[in-house]
């Protein structure tokens, strides 16, 4: 099952989660990857860890979102996945 949260508007990120995964994979497309890729990965991993997720495909289209926005988008997508009966 796939769910999305957010948008590609400036300072936002479009997060897609797919629970049809056997481990955690994180794919981030961002105009600031060269500078912040590690920080963005860490941010995503922290949220997944806090939420106890161990298998999920995460795809992010970032448009200069700060960490707090990334966290919000991932958390709301996780919430939607849970609401819809996903395996997370």
């Amino acid at each position: 099952m796939k769910v999305t949260s957010g948008s590609t508007e400036k300072m936002d990120a479009l997060v897609e989660l797919d629970d049809d995964a056997s481990s955690i994979t994180i794919d981030i497309h961002s105009p600031v990857s060269s500078l912040y890729r590690e920080a963005q990965l860490r941010c995503v991993q922290e949220v997944l860890e806090q939420e106890g997720v161990d298998a999920l495909a995460v795809t992010i289209e970032d448009n200069h979102a700060i960490d707090a926005v990334l966290r919000a988008r991932i958390r709301s997508a996780l919430s939607e996945l849970g609401t819809k009966g996903g395996s997370v």
Partner: peptide, 13 residues
């Protein structure tokens, strides 16, 4: 719901 999570994360900055 997206908006509610956004406020939770941003208004503490």
């Amino acid at each position: 719901n997206e908006a509610r999570f956004l406020l939770q994360e941003l208004l503490v900055l």
